Simulated assay, not measured.
Amino acid sequence: MIYDIRHVTTYSYESPVSFARCSLRLEPRSGDGQQLVSHSVEIRPKPAERTIRRDFFGTHTESVLIEAAHRSLRIDSRSRVQVSRQALGRTAPSPSWENVRDVALEASSLGPASPVGYVFASSLVPVLGPVTAYAAASFPQGQGILTGAVDLMHRVRHDFKYDPKATVISTPLREVFEKRHGVCQDFAHVMIAGLRGLGLPAAYVSGYLRTYPPAGKPRLQGADATHAWVSVWCGREIGWIGFDPTNDLLVENDHIILAVGRDFSDVSPVDGIIVGSRKQKLAVAVDVVPVE
Rank of each mutant, 00 (worst) to 15 (best):
L146F: 14
D244K: 10
Q86N: 10
K46C: 13
S79L: 04
F120H: 04
E175I: 12
P130E: 07
G129M: 09
D163I: 03
P95G: 10
Q185V: 10
L110V: 09
A259C: 08
V270E: 05
D266E: 11
S206R: 07
A92I: 02
T91N: 12
G89F: 03
R219G: 09
Y118D: 02
L195K: 00
L152I: 07
H7W: 05
I257V: 13
D163L: 04
G276Y: 04
V17G: 15
F120M: 01
I145W: 05
S12C: 05
D271M: 06
A202T: 03
T246I: 05
V291C: 02
R180W: 04
V125C: 00
W97V: 00
W229K: 10
S96M: 07
N99P: 00
H39Y: 15
R180K: 15
T9L: 05
I43V: 15
A92P: 07
E106G: 00
D159F: 11
L36I: 08
V288S: 09
V284W: 05
E175V: 10
D244R: 08
A113Y: 09
A135E: 01
I192K: 04
G182F: 12
P214I: 04
A188F: 09
A104M: 03
F243C: 00
L173Q: 06
T10P: 01
A259R: 03
D163V: 05
R50Q: 04
T226P: 00
G197W: 09
R80M: 08
S170D: 14
E67Q: 11
A259N: 01
E292I: 03
F243N: 06
